[in-house]
Design a protein around this nucleic acid. Structure first.
Lengths: 186, 186
DNA sequence: TTATACGTTTAAAATATATTATATAAATTA
DNA sequence: TAATTTATATAATATATTTTAAACGTATAA
């Protein structure tokens, strides 16, 4: 391998590490992140064995990691003519990956809390109305206010999710910054 | 304890569990999330010992958890006249908590990847220019394009972070959904 | 000053998560 | 059909994280 090629690959590894680490904040383990990183810099679809060699993990681990990445839509399986093995490519559009992940997360959070609200709100309402116990009534009323606030929050989250999903957000924040006379970097 | 009060507390526990679980997607462990939940439904500032009793954890764990929650600005220490122990209250504004956390996360991701770009871009540039090796040159050029895409993405993320932080986002997504013909209050 | 209360640090134990080697299932070829 | 290759599931192991008990330092009170 030429010295130039070597340096390029080393730099790619630096980028892959950074990408893998940054993915950990989105709940993806660093090694799964590395799998994504390897695919990101691959110049053609890779097989499980290709990846296994590059990330130094067992094939089973790579298989699990790939499945996770496919579920989160960061990797796609592609068919390669004349080849028996599955091949995989990375979705390279970071923004798309981010939006997919993030919208899903927001909806998960919403559903989680909403389910609890649906379960508890009737009880708070009951106690707030027919209270035999003054203190209980007071607390129930306070809790109903908290739940109202929470609903407002979840409502905003859902509007954010919708805006991100539909692309409406780009009316507010265009994908590419508009350059006028300001050039703060070269 | 009255039956009413009991039912209210049980419902609060359901809410606390949901809140704790939803916080795990933001990298907070469920038990730390429970500490937050207990403070969220507390009607006065609590001490470490108060919390310890309610969540059934050791005092040391509660202490660590509280520190984490203070660092992420979800909990505040308050001083209570005549009391020696520290007291804590939850920041109850979910939207505020979300924005604080999320803006921090976006900036972290940006810095992580940017550092790698600053380190590797000069090398890709060098190889792309002075290549002795044709293949290396080609790859370096491809990688420079990937880096450009990544920069655009990070740029958009930072504009999103700024919009969330400044409150500019609320011009696009008002905090409260507009109901037709409303006379807005407060 | 000494005694006591409080919060934090530390090191060890418990728990959870990730990884691997092996076994199994599914698909392909001969 | 059997033999072969590939991907996944399972169970054991290794690693990382969380939790705790005990020790520690600091502040307050007597």
């Amino acid at each position: 391998m030429s010295e130039d090629l070597n340096r390029v690959h080393e730099s790619e590894d630096v980028m892959i590490s950074a990408i893998a680490q940054s993915m950990t904040v989105y709940g993806v383990s660093a090694s799964v992140g590395r799998i994504y990183g390897v695919l990101y810099f691959a110049d053609e679809p890779l097989t499980l064995d290709d990846i296994k060699d590059q990330v130094a993990m067992s094939k089973a681990s790579v298989s699990n990691g790939i499945r996770e990445l496919i579920e989160t839509e960061m990797v796609t399986k592609v068919w390669k003519k004349g080849e028996r093995k599955d091949h995989f490519i990375a979705e390279k559009d970071f923004l798309r990956n981010f939006l997919t992940y993030f919208v899903k997360t927001l909806r998960t959070e919403r559903n989680l809390i909403y389910k609890a609200i649906e379960q508890t709100e009737p009880i708070f309402n009951e106690v707030a109305k027919d209270a035999n116990d003054d203190q209980a009534e007071q607390i129930a009323n306070r809790d109903l206010e908290l739940i109202d606030d929470a609903k407002n929050y979840l409502n905003w989250l859902m509007r954010l999710a919708n805006s991100l999903e539909s692309g409406d957000i780009f009316n507010h924040l265009p994908k590419h910054e508009e350059k006028e006379s300001t050039n703060d970097e070269s």
